[in-house]
C-alpha cells in the first residue's frame, strides 16, 4: 500500500504532468491562455485575483523552502528550529489567509456573476474542487502546526521523502509515518498535478518574465507557414455556437 500511494501514484501523476504539458503545448497553443473573465466583471476580481495570486506565490515560495531546503542547510546558517518554525507558520498563515480569502471571493464571483458562470467549463469546476481541497488541507496542517496541537516536523519526514522522490530514489516509509493531514494534502496535490496540463492552470508556465528584458516593439517577418493548409481553428465558431 505504501509503495502504491507514495511511489506509484506520485510518479504516475508526475509523468502525466510532464507529458501532458508537452502534448498540450504542441497541440493546443491556441488554448494556452489565462482565460481571463475580467471583461465580464471587475469589482470582485480586482480584490480577489491579486489576493489569490499573491497568496499563491507566497505559498509556493514557502513550499520551495520547506520541501527543497534540507534542515541541515538552515541549521548551518544558524537558523534555530524555533525561529524557522515560527517564520514558516507566520509566513504560511499570512499567505494561506490571502489565498483562502482570495479563492473564496473568486469562487463566489464565479458562481454568482451570470456571464462568468456560463463561461465556466466542467474542467474548471473539477480544477476548482481539487485546488480547493489542496488549499484547505494545507491550511489545516498549518493551523494545527501553529496551534501546537500537532508536533510533526515535516522537514524530517515529508520533505525528505519529497526530495527522495525527485531524486528517483523514493523512500515511501517516511510518508507512512506522516499525519493523515499531510498525507491527504500530498495526495490531493498530486491529483492536481495530474490535472494541471488539461486545465487553465497551464498559464502558470507562461508567466511573462521575458517582458522585463525584451524590446518594446516586436518586429516579425510575414508568416512562412502556408495558412491555407491550416485546419479551421477554434475561435472561428459562429456567433451563437
Amino acid at each position: 500500500m505504501n509503495t502504491f500511494l507514495w511511489v506509484i501514484v506520485p510518479y504516475l501523476c508526475l509523468a502525466v504532468f510532464v507529458v501532458g504539458h508537452i502534448w498540450r503545448y504542441r497541440y493546443d497553443k491556441f488554448g494556452w491562455t489565462t482565460r481571463s473573465s475580467q471583461l465580464y466583471e471587475d469589482r470582485l476580481l480586482r480584490l480577489g485575483s491579486p489576493l489569490f495570486h499573491f497568496g499563491m506565490l507566497g505559498a509556493v515560495g514557502g513550499h520551495v523552502v520547506g520541501l527543497l531546503l534540507p534542515q541541515s542547510w538552515t541549521d548551518a546558517v544558524g537558523i534555530s528550529d524555533a525561529a524557522y518554525h515560527w517564520g514558516a507558520v507566520l509566513g504560511g498563515l499570512a499567505a494561506g489567509v490571502m489565498l483562502v480569502v482570495g479563492m473564496a471571493i473568486l469562487i463566489y464571483r464565479r458562481r454568482t456573476v451570470g456571464p462568468v458562470f456560463s463561461a465556466t467549463t466542467p474542467m474548471d469546476k473539477v480544477m476548482y474542487a481539487v485546488l480547493g481541497v489542496v488549499v484547505l488541507l494545507g491550511m489545516w496542517n498549518t493551523v494545527l502546526g501553529a496551534s501546537g496541537l500537532e508536533h510533526y516536523n515535516y522537514r524530517e519526514g515529508v520533505s525528505v521523502w519529497y526530495r527522495s522522490f525527485l531524486a528517483f530514489q523514493p523512500q515511501p516509509e517516511l510518508m507512512a509515518e506522516a499525519p493523515i493531514g499531510f498525507k491527504l494534502h500530498a495526495l490531493s496535490a498530486f491529483v492536481l498535478f495530474a490535472l494541471w496540463p488539461f486545465t487553465r492552470l497551464v498559464h502558470v508556465f507562461s508567466a511573462p518574465v521575458g517582458y522585463v528584458t525584451r524590446p518594446y516593439i516586436v518586429y516579425r517577418s510575414r508568416d512562412e507557414r502556408p495558412l491555407g493548409n491550416a485546419a479551421p481553428r477554434r475561435g472561428w465558431d459562429r456567433v451563437g455556437s
Binding site: P208, Y211, R214, I217, V218, Y219, R220, R222
Partner: peptide
C-alpha cells in the same frame, strides 16, 4: 507581456 503582438517588417 508575452510579446505576441508584432509589427510586420
Amino acid at each position: 507581456p508575452s510579446g505576441a503582438i508584432y509589427k510586420r517588417e
